[in-house]
Design a protein around this nucleic acid. Structure first.
Length: 883
RNA sequence: GCCCGGGUGGCGGAAUUGGUAGACGCGCUGGAUUCAAAAUCCAGUUCUGGCAACGGAGUGCGGGUUCGAUUCCCGCCCCGGGUACCA
C-alpha cells in the first residue's frame, strides 16, 4: 500500500478536468458562496510557495462549502498588464502579449498541479480585449459621472444642474464647469516621474524615501497633462462603508488613515495693509487666542503679494531653495524647521492683534488651504518652529493637573491635550471661551466665526486625486480622442474595445510620451467633417484591470454587457476575499471606489464589493550567508548539531529568516515540493505551518512531517484488511465525530492548522486500533478531502464509489456520541493542579465536595490547613482554596 | 513620533477566549526490525533537583485584580507591518 502520490494526483486532476467537476452553474435555488483569491501578476519566475498559501485556504473552504450544499463561485485569473513584460519587449522585441501568454500558461500549469478546484471556464485575463473592453467602458462611466454632494452619490453628468451664474458666462464656462465635476478629468498635474520606468506613478506608489516601489529608483516632480480620478469625492462614503464589512481592524485602520478625514474650520485672517484675506484651515479653532504667527507654504498663490520689498530677496531665496529640495528633504530628513518672515502681518480675527506671516516649507500646499495659523503653545510643530525663531509662545489652555503644568503655563512646553482656557477672551470682538474645555471651546468658536462671517466648519481629507495614466504601452488604452480644436471625446461603446496597435519599438519616446506616440496609423483619427484628432497615448495603470475583475468572473463571456444583472444580484457581494496585506490600501481602496460609483449608477447591487476580507501572512524562508554576507543557496547547506556549513567549502554559515527572493537564493518553488512530496503534502504543509494570517518560515522538514501523516493514513486506509464491516469501536466512533466537528469548525474559522492536527489524531487512533469500519473509513475520506483532495478521491473510489466525492454531503455529527458520563477533574489547591479524579458529570456540587475532600490524596495538601473555599466548575475544574 | 499586529519548549505552533500550559508536527534520545543502511514501528522528550517516588520554577519584564491569569487591568522592553511636518 505504498503512497504513490505521483500516480494518484495526476489521475484525479485529469478526472476533474475531463468531467468539469468544478464548473459553477447559476443555480439560484441553492445558497451561494463567492470565494475569491487575489489574482496574481503572472511573472516570468512562476509561482513560489507563497502564492498557494491563500489559494489552498480558499480551496479548502470552497470544497467544504460545496459539501455543505452551497453553490460556490471560486475563480482564478491573471492581472497581466504590467511593466516586466514591456521591459522584456524593449530588450528583445518580443511582443508583451506573447510573453504574457507564456507566463499565464506556466501559472495555469503550476496552479492546476496543486489540485485547486477553480472553475477554469471562468478564467479571465486583464489583457484580453474582451475583458478590457469593459475596463474602458467603466472609465467612460467615470468620465460621465459627477458626485452630488447633497445626495452623497454619484450621478450621470447629464443630470448635472448648471448654475445660472455659470450659464451667463457662456459655453466655455459651462464646459469648464462640467469638466470640473467629472470623476475622471484630464489636466495639468504635478506628478511623480520615474526616469527608470519612464513613466509617472501615483503618490501611493512612491515610498517614503522617495523611491519608486516598482523599481527602487528615485522619482522626480514633473508637470504633465494627465488623467486623474476624483476619488476624494467618495472620501466620506469610503470611510463609512468600512463600518459594515467584516475586515481585519488593522486594514480598516490603514484605510481610515489613508483617507485621513479631519474636521476643523477655515478661518479668514485680514492681511494688514492689503485688501485681502488669508484663509487657513485648522482643526483647533479654539486656540485662535494663542496664535502668534502664521505660515504659508512656499508655493502659496499669495506669497508674492504678501512679501514686502524689504523681505523680498530673502523670501525669494527661500522659495527657490525649497523648490530645489526634494520632497524627501522637505519632509523626512528635515528635522530642523526652516522659514523666513515675509515682512507682512495678519489680523487675528478673535482679538484684532497683529501677527507676523512667515513662509516655511513645513506647511504643504497640497493640504487644506496651504496656510496655517500657528499656535506654538498647543501644537508641537509650531512649538519647534517658534523656538527656532524666537517667536512668542502664549499658553491659552491650562493643563490643570499635568506634571509639567508650570512649564506649559510659562510657554516653555507644548500642550496638545485637553484643559481649561485662559487668556481667551476679547472685549473688542465679544468672544470669550475662558473656563471651557476643548470640545466646548471648539464649538463656541466655530459658531462665533460663522455668525461673524469669518470662517466656517470644514472637513478635509488627506486622500488626493488618483493619478490614473501611465506613459506605457502594455496597459489599457484610454478610449479618448483629443481633437485639433481642443475638444475631447470618448470612443463610442460600439467601437470598444479600443485595442493596442502593433508597434516596431516599445521604447518610450524621448519626450517622455508613451510608446503609443509612435503608432502612426492608430494615433490619428479623422471625423466625418474632416476634423483631425489624436488618440490618447497614455495607458491606464495596472490597478485598472484589478479594480473590477471580481465582477467579470460572474459572467466572463458576456459580449453584450459587462455582466448579466440577475447573475450579479445572485453572486455579489464576494463572501470571502483572501490575499496579501500589501494590498490593504491601494487595490482595496480603488476597487471600493469604482464599486461605489457603479453602485450609484445602478450597475451593481451592493455598496461594498467584499463582505469579508482576510490577509494571509507572508511565507518567509531560511537563507544562509557566509561571514562576509555572501548568500549561499539552500541546497549547498548542511546542518550539523544546530550549526550550518557550506557543503563544498565547509565554511560555517549564518542562518537568517527572510522574504523569499532571488538575491537571497531562498526561493522555494512549488513544482519541486510537488515532485518530492506531492500536491496534497504541499497543500497540507501550507496550512499546517501556523495560523493563516501570520508570517512564518518555510521548513522542508515540516513538509516531511505532513507527508508522513498522509503516507501513514494511506497505508492504513487503503489497506482493505483494515476496513471491516460491523459496529464501530466506541472510542473510534467518539473521536471520529469529535474530529468531524473540529475540522468543520476550524475550516469555517479559517483555522486550518488545528484542523489538520485533529485529522492526525484520528489517524493515530485508527492505526493504534488496527481496524475501522467501512463507514468510518468513508467518513474519514470525506473530511480529509478538502485538505488532501487527491487522496480523498482515491480512497473514496477504493471504497466502491464511482462519482467524485466533491459534492458528497459533509458528514453529520452525532452529538450523542460526544456525551460523556464522567469527567476527569483536575483537582488543584490554590490554583496548583495536584491530582485528577474521575467523577460523574451529573453529580451535584455537595456530593462532589464530599467525595473530593474524602479522597486520601487531599490529606497531604491540606495538612494543618483549612478549606477556605471550594470551587467547582462543571466539566472544567475543581479548585480548593486553603490557608 | 503616531497607529496596528506579535513575543509560549531546541524549532513551527496548540490551549474552542478566566479553568489541567506545551495538543499536533519537526528535531533529538533510547529500543525493535535489518548483515547494514534507508524506510517503518514502539517508548521518552518544558527547564530544574532526584535512581525513583515526588518536588520546585515556568507563557518577554515589573506590578495588580481573582479561588485560579498565556488569557483581564496598569507600567515597561523587544520584534514585525503601516504611516509620517495632513495643521
Amino acid at each position: 500500500m505504498e503512497y504513490k502520490f505521483a500516480e494518484i494526483e495526476p489521475k484525479w486532476q485529469r478526472y476533474w478536468e475531463e468531467n468539469k467537476t468544478f464548473k459553477t452553474v447559476d443555480d439560484y435555488s441553492k445558497p451561494k458562496y463567492y470565494i475569491l483569491d487575489m489574482f496574481p501578476y503572472p511573472s516570468g519566475a512562476g509561482l513560489h510557495v507563497g502564492h498557494p498559501e491563500g489559494y489552498t485556504a480558499t480551496d479548502i473552504l470552497s470544497r467544504y462549502k460545496r459539501m455543505k450544499g452551497f453553490n460556490v463561485l471560486h475563480p482564478m485569473g491573471y492581472d497581466a498588464f504590467g511593466l516586466p513584460a514591456e521591459q522584456y519587449a524593449i530588450q528583445t522585441g518580443t511582443h508583451p502579449a506573447i510573453t504574457t501568454q507564456k507566463n499565464c500558461d506556466n501559472f495555469r500549469r503550476q496552479i492546476k498541479a496543486i489540485g485547486l478546484s477553480y472553475d477554469w471556464d471562468r478564467e479571465i485575463n486583464t489583457t484580453d480585449p474582451k475583458y478590457f473592453k469593459w475596463t474602458q467602458w467603466i472609465f467612460k462611466k467615470l468620465y460621465d459621472t459627477y458626485f452630488d454632494e447633497e445626495q452623497q452619490k454619484g450621478r450621470p453628468i447629464s443630470e448635472l444642474v448648471i448654475p445660472e451664474a455659470v450659464k451667463v458666462q457662456g459655453e466655455e464656462a459651462v464646459k469648464t464647469y462640467i469638466s470640473e465635476k467629472r470623476l475622471a478629468y484630464y489636466d495639468n498635474a504635478q506628478v511623480w516621474w520615474c526616469d527608470s520606468c519612464k513613466t509617472v506613478c501615483a503618490n501611493e506608489e512612491v515610498l517614503t524615501d522617495g523611491s519608486h516601489e516598482k523599481c527602487g529608483h528615485q522619482v522626480v516632480r514633473k508637470n504633465l497633462k494627465q488623467w486623474l480620478l476624483r476619488i476624494p469625492h467618495y472620501g466620506e462614503r469610503l470611510l463609512s462603508g468600512l463600518e459594515g464589512v467584516d475586515w481585519p481592524e488593522g486594514v480598516k485602520d490603514m484605510q481610515r488613515n489613508w483617507i485621513g478625514k479631519s474636521t476643523g474650520a477655515e478661518v479668514d485672517f485680514r492681511i494688514d495693509g492689503l485688501d485681502k484675506n488669508l484663509r487657513v484651515y485648522t482643526t483647533r479653532p479654539d486656540t485662535l487666542f494663542g496664535a502668534t504667527y502664521m505660515v504659508i507654504a512656499p508655493e502659496h498663490a499669495l506669497v508674492n503679494e504678501i512679501t514686502t520689498d524689504e523681505q523680498r530677496s530673502s523670501v525669494e531665496a527661500y522659495i527657490k531653495a525649497a523648490a530645489l529640495k526634494s520632497d524627501l528633504d522637505r519632509t523626512d530628513l528635515a528635522k530642523e524647521k526652516t522659514g523666513v518672515f515675509t515682512g507682512r502681518y495678519a489680523v487675528n480675527p478673535v482679538n484684532k492683534e497683529l501677527i507676523p506671516i512667515w513662509v516655511a516649507d513645513y506647511v504643504l500646499m497640497g493640504y487644506g488651504t496651504g496656510a496655517i495659523m500657528a499656535v506654538p503653545a498647543h501644537d508641537t510643530r509650531d512649538f519647534e518652529f517658534a523656538k527656532e525663531f524666537n517667536i512668542p509662545v502664549i499658553c491659552i489652555l491650562d493643563p490643570k493637573n499635568a506634571e509639567n503644568r508650570d512649564e506649559v503655563l510659562a510657554g516653555d512646553a507644548c500642550w496638545t491635550e485637553d484643559g481649561e482656557y485662559i487668556r481667551s477672551a476679547s472685549a473688542e470682538t465679544g468672544l470669550d471661551i475662558n473656563g471651557l474645555n476643548k470640545t466646548a471651546g471648539i464649538d463656541k468658536t466655530v459658531a462665533w466665526l460663522e455668525e461673524n462671517g469669518l470662517g466656517k466648519a470644514t472637513v478635509n481629507f488627506k486622500l488626493r486625486d488618483w493619478l490614473f495614466s501611465r506613459q506605457r504601452y502594455w496597459g489599457e488604452p484610454f478610449p479618448v480622442i483629443h481633437w485639433e480644436d481642443g475638444e475631447v471625446t470618448l470612443v463610442e461603446d460600439e467601437n470598444l474595445p479600443l485595442q493596442l496597435p502593433e508597434l516596431e519599438e516599445y521604447k518610450p519616446s524621448e519626450s517622455g510620451e508613451s510608446p503609443l506616440a509612435n503608432a502612426g496609423d492608430w494615433l490619428t483619427v479623422t471625423d466625418k467633417n474632416g476634423r483631425k484628432g489624436r488618440r490618447e497615448t497614455n495607458t491606464m495603470p495596472q490597478w485598472a484591470g484589478s479594480c473590477w475583475y471580481y465582477l467579470r468572473y460572474i459572467d466572463p463571456n458576456n459580449e453584450d454587457s459587462i455582466f448579466d444583472g440577475k447573475k450579479e444580484q445572485y453572486w455579489m457581494p464576494v463572501d470571502l476575499y483572501v490575499g496579501g496585506a500589501e494590498h490593504a490600501v491601494l487595490h482595496l481602496l480603488y476597487s471600493r471606489f469604482w464599486h461605489k460609483v457603479l453602485f450609484d449608477l445602478g450597475v451593481v447591487s451592493t455598496d461594498e464589493p467584499f463582505q469579508k476580507l482576510f490577509n494571509q501572512g507572508m511565507i518567509l524562508a531560511f537563507a544562509y550567508e557566509t561571514s562576509t554576507g555572501a548568500k549561499v543557496a539552500s541546497d549547498l547547506v548542511e546542518e550539523k548539531d544546530g550549526k550550518y556549513f557550506h557543503t563544498e567549502t565547509g565554511e560555517e554559515l549564518r542562518q537568517i529568516v527572510a522574504k523569499m527572493s532571488k538575491s537571497l537564493k531562498n526561493v522555494v518553488n512549488p513544482d519541486d515540493v510537488i515532485e518530492r512530496y506531492g500536491a496534497d503534502s504541499l497543500r497540507l504543509y501550507e496550512m499546517f505551518m501556523g495560523p493563516l494570517d501570520e508570517r512564518k518560515p518555510w521548513a522542508e522538514n515540516g513538509v516531511k512531517g505532513v507527508f508522513n501523516f498522509l503516507a501513514r493514513a494511506y497505508r492504513f486506509f487503503a489497506n482493505t484488511e483494515n476496513i471491516v464491516e460491523g459496529e464501530e469501536d466506541k472510542e473510534v466512533a467518539k473521536l471520529l465525530h469529535q474530529t468531524i466537528k473540529k475540522v468543520a469548525f476550524d475550516i469555517e474559522n479559517l483555522k486550518f492548522n488545528t484542523g489538520i492536527a485533529a485529522l492526525m489524531m484520528f489517524n493515530n487512533l485508527a492505526i493504534k486500533k488496527g481496524k475501522v469500519t467501512k463507514a468510518t473509513a468513508r467518513t474519514f475520506a470525506k473530511i480529509l478531502s478538502p485538505y488532501a483532495p487527491h487522496m480523498g478521491e482515491e480512497l473514496w473510489s477504493m471504497y466502491g464509489d464511482t462519482e467524485t466525492l466533491a459534492y458528497e454531503p459533509w458528514p453529520e455529527v452525532d452529538e450523542s456520541l460526544l456525551q460523556e458520563a464522567t469527567y476527569e477533574y483536575p483537582v488543584s489547591f490554590n490554583g496548583k493542579t495536584r491530582f485528577k479524579i474521575e467523577l460523574p458529570v451529573d453529580m451535584p456540587k455537595e456530593e462532589i465536595e464530599k467525595t473530593v475532600l474524602a479522597d486520601e490524596r487531599c490529606a497531604k495538601w491540606m495538612e494543618g490547613k483549612t478549606v477556605r473555599k471550594f470551587i467547582f466548575v462543571p466539566k472544567k475544574i475543581i479548585n480548593i482554596a486553603i490557608g
